[in-house]
C-alpha cells in the first residue's frame, strides 16, 4: 500500500518537473496584447470580419493587418476601447443591420404546394421555390440558420430581421438564394420591403404587399429625394434617409413601405388591403 502511494507520488512529481521544464524550454513567445484585444472583442466567432474567429482577428489587429473597426459586431465604444488599448486612432464606423427586402408572408402571397427539403437553397431548385413571386422570400429560414445571434425570425413563412438583435455580421447575406438581404445603416428605420422588378400589376397578382411603384412615398417626401425610383420599384435613399414619419405620411397602399422596428414587432400583420 505505502509502496504504491510512494511510487505513484514519485512518478507524478517526476512528470510534473518534466512538464514544467519542457514548458519553459519550448515556450512560444506570444504578444500578450493579442489576448488583451481578444478579451475586448465580443467572442461570438461569427466570422463577419473575414477572419477565422475572434482570436484570429485579434492577432490581425495587433499585427496591424486589420483595424478594429472591421469587426461588425463591436459597438463604437468597443472599438474605441480596443483602439485605446493599442494606442491607435479608431475610425468612426456606422453600425449596419440586415434587412430582408420582402414582406410577402404566407398570408399575403400566392404559393404552390411544395414538397421537399425545408431549406431555401434546396427549395429554390424546385420551381424556383414554388412562390408566385420569382423574387420573394421563400421562408425556409436558411438565413435564420446562418445567423449566430438569433436575430432573424421566420414568421408566417417570411424572414424578419430584429434590428435590435442584428449586429451586422453579414452571415445571412450570402446564403439567401434570392439575394434579398442587404446591409443598411442601423439609424435608418424606413425601408421598402419588396425586391421585385416586375410590373405593378404582375406583382399584385401574386402578392398583396408588393411595391407597385405608385410613388406616393416619393411625393410625400416633397423636394427631398428620400425615396428613389428604380423601374417598377422604389428604394430608400440611404444617403439621404427619410424620417420615420414618412411611412405615416405616404400611406403606402400595399404597406410595402415599412418601419423595420414595427415590422419586426409584427405591426403590419393583417393590415394589407
Amino acid at each position: 500500500m505505502i509502496a504504491a502511494i510512494v511510487s505513484v507520488g514519485v512518478l507524478g512529481a517526476l512528470l510534473g518537473v518534466i512538464i514544467g521544464v519542457v514548458a519553459k524550454a519550448f515556450a512560444v513567445e506570444v504578444d500578450e496584447r493579442i489576448e488583451g484585444v481578444g478579451d475586448l472583442l465580443p467572442g461570438a466567432n461569427c466570422g463577419g470580419c473575414g477572419y477565422a474567429g475572434c482570436a484570429d482577428f485579434a492577432k490581425a489587429v495587433v499585427g496591424e493587418t486589420a483595424t478594429p473597426d472591421q469587426c461588425p459586431v463591436c459597438s463604437a465604444e468597443d472599438i474605441s476601447n480596443i483602439a485605446g488599448y493599442l494606442g491607435i486612432v479608431a475610425e468612426e464606423k456606422e453600425k449596419m443591420v440586415a434587412v430582408v427586402r420582402c414582406s410577402g408572408n404566407a398570408s399575403n402571397t400566392v404559393r404552390s404546394l411544395y414538397n421537399g427539403v425545408r431549406d431555401c437553397r434546396s427549395a429554390v431548385l424546385v420551381a424556383g421555390g414554388a412562390k408566385g413571386c420569382d423574387y420573394g422570400c421563400l421562408g425556409f429560414g436558411s438565413c435564420a440558420d446562418a445567423c449566430p445571434f438569433g436575430a432573424i425570425e421566420i414568421r408566417d413563412a417570411l424572414a424578419i430581421v430584429h434590428p435590435e438583435l442584428c449586429v451586422g455580421c453579414e452571415n445571412c447575406v450570402a446564403v439567401c438564394p434570392k439575394n434579398l438581404i442587404v446591409m443598411v445603416p442601423a439609424s435608418v428605420d424606413v425601408h421598402v420591403y419588396c425586391n421585385s422588378p416586375e410590373k405593378g400589376a404582375a406583382k399584385r397578382k401574386v402578392c398583396k404587399t408588393a411595391c407597385i411603384a405608385c410613388r406616393k412615398c416619393v411625393k410625400a417626401s416633397g423636394e427631398e429625394d428620400h425615396m428613389l425610383v428604380d423601374g417598377f420599384l422604389v428604394k430608400t435613399n440611404y444617403d439621404n434617409p427619410p424620417p420615420t414619419d414618412l411611412v405615416e405620411a405616404s400611406a403606402c397602399p400595399t404597406t410595402a413601405l415599412r418601419l423595420a422596428s414595427k415590422h419586426a414587432a409584427g405591426g403590419y400583420e393583417g393590415v394589407s388591403k
Binding site: G116, S122, L125
Partner: peptide, 13 residues
C-alpha cells in the same frame, strides 16, 4: 428521403 434534391443542391454549391 429527398435524396435527388440533396445531390442537386450539393452539385450547385
Amino acid at each position: 428521403r429527398p435524396l435527388n434534391q440533396h445531390f442537386k443542391r450539393a452539385k450547385i454549391e
